[in-house]
Computed example of a mutant assay.
Amino acid sequence: MGISDAMALPGYDLDAQIGYLLRRVTQRHLALFGQAIPELTTMQFAVLARLAELGPLSQNHLGREASMDAATIKGVVDRLIRQGLVVTTPDPDDRRRLTVSLTETGATLVTSLVPAALAVTEATLAPLTTEERATLSALLARLA
């Protein structure tokens, strides 16, 4: 049988917890992203953006650059390969290592989606002033 009355949690306010707040902001951002860019997940977009920015990378290095662990980056790259947006080739110096590159389709897609991605950032940050945006970004970078 459950407790039928609300109970106080002395010293704890869920609405003031950083993890809870970050999750709520992330959920809002993901919803905005999904509406603006339905063809990719945020993680897929991050991989395409990093490859556009840095050029071909080993799958391992790409994972580090996109802040994904080895299993996650493998799954994201596999899905992007199936979509024809990236290709992998064996590294000439180490055949066990795969190099991930954008396809022409992937490069065209990520380039075309940049305005929408920027609009998602703008919509996410819309409640903040320019100064607040800069402060938030700087503080989050310190925590990352």
Rank of each mutant, 00 (worst) to 15 (best):
M1R: 03
M1Y: 02
G2A: 15
G2L: 14
I3K: 10
D5M: 11
A6G: 01
A8G: 01
P10Y: 09
Y12M: 09
D15F: 04
A16Q: 12
Q17E: 14
Q17P: 01
Y20S: 07
L21N: 04
R23W: 07
R24K: 12
V25P: 00
T26Q: 13
T26W: 10
Q27R: 12
H29M: 14
A31L: 13
F33K: 06
A36E: 07
I37Y: 02
P38L: 13
T41A: 07
M43W: 09
M43N: 14
V47F: 09
A49Y: 10
A52H: 09
E53Y: 11
G55L: 13
S58H: 05
Q59N: 07
N60P: 00
N60Q: 11
H61W: 03
L62A: 10
G63T: 06
A70P: 02
A71R: 14
A71P: 00
T72K: 15
I73L: 15
I73S: 02
K74P: 00
V76W: 02
D78Q: 14
L80W: 05
Q83V: 07
L85F: 08
D91T: 05
D94C: 05
D94W: 04
R96M: 06
R97Y: 03
L98E: 05
T99G: 00
V100G: 00
S101N: 10
E104F: 13
E104V: 14
E104I: 14
G106V: 11
A107D: 14
V110K: 00
V110R: 01
A116C: 04
A116V: 04
A117G: 06
A119P: 01
T121F: 06
T121D: 03
A123L: 13
T124S: 13
T124R: 12
L125F: 15
L125E: 03
L128V: 07
T129G: 04
T129P: 01
R133G: 02
R133D: 00
R133K: 12
T135M: 06
L139C: 02
L139V: 06
R142Y: 03
R142G: 04
